[in-house]
Amino acid sequence: MSERRRETLTYLVGYALALVLTLGAFAAVKWPIAAAGTTLAIILALALVQVIVQFRCFLHISLSRSSRHDLLLVLFASLIVTLMVSGTLVILFNLRDRMM
C-alpha cells in the first residue's frame, strides 16, 4: 500500500471512530439507559477515548520511537493539566462545602 493511501486511511479511520464515539455520547445522553452519575461517567470515558483517537490519527502522536519527544511533551502537559485541574476542583469544592 502506498504511503499516501496509508496516511489517507489513517485520517478516514480516525474520522469514522470520532463519529461513532460522538454519536454514542449523544445517544447516551438523549436516551439514558443508566443513572445520571453513570451516564456522566460514560460520556467522559467516550470523550477521553475520542481525544486519544484524535491525537493518534489526526495529530499523529504515537508510541513509535521517532515521535517520542512529542509524546513526552504531550504526556508532561497532561500531567500538569491533571495536577492543576484536580487541585482546582479539590480546593474549590472544599471551599464551597465550608461556605454552605
Binding site: A18, T22, A25, I43, L44, L46, A47, Q50, V51, Q54, F55, F58, L59
Partner: peptide, 12 residues
C-alpha cells in the same frame, strides 16, 4: 486538529 480536540472536551 487541536481545536477539534478542545471542542470534544467542550461538547462533553
Amino acid at each position: 486538529h487541536f481545536l477539534d480536540v478542545i471542542w470534544i472536551a467542550i461538547l462533553t
